[in-house]
């Protein structure tokens, strides 16, 4: 039985077989180009949680309480409405007020009272405004007085 002729590369003496290497290099290049993800910058907005076993302070401090609730059915309109110390504010005015507060006292404690039906974006938008105002003492508390109404397609518990 005739033996199969072994495949040989047509390479002249003193030359390197480049074609196979170029193939592998291009495959590697294509792999890295395809798997490369665009650079997306993230930020982390810090909030304070109540420390376990913490005691209330003796000295009462002046608080700045912002209510974050779902007020409007339209998500875009809803993002523009907040309540500060029981008064209705639009977001741009609130941002300006927070910046003023931050200039006067960056250690001012901000209490964010968040309702269960508010979209997370509304809270993040407020925390972003606090970050812009250089306010660092932000306490997020959960409003337990409002009943949770699950949005369609979400879990009820």
């Amino acid at each position: 039985m005739a033996r199969k002729k072994r495949r040989t590369f047509n390479v002249k003496e003193g030359e390197m077989p480049l074609s196979a290497m170029i193939d592998v290099v291009f495959q590697l290049l294509i792999y890295f180009v395809v798997t490369q993800k665009p650079i997306i910058e993230n930020t982390l907005l810090s909030v304070d949680l109540p420390a376990p076993g913490g005691k209330p302070k003796d000295k009462p401090v002046q608080l700045f309480t912002i209510d974050v609730h779902k007020i409007m059915p339209d998500p875009k309109e809803d993002l523009n409405v907040y309540y500060v110390n029981q008064q209705k504010w639009n977001f741009d005015d609130l941002r300006a007020q927070l910046i003023k507060t931050g200039e006067l006292d960056p250690k001012q404690t901000i209490i964010v009272n968040c309702g269960p039906n508010a979209r997370h974006q509304k809270l993040v938008q407020l925390l972003d405004a606090c970050s812009q105002a250089n306010l660092t003492s932000i306490n997020v508390v959960n409003d337990l007085t409002i009943e949770f109404a699950p949005a369609p397609g979400t879990r009820s518990k």
Binding site: V68, G115, P116, N117, R119, H120, T154
Partner: peptide
């Protein structure tokens, strides 16, 4: 998620 209700975030907190 930007659209998740705060109730679910609260449970995690």
């Amino acid at each position: 998620d930007k659209d998740v209700q705060h109730y679910h975030i609260r449970k995690v907190m």
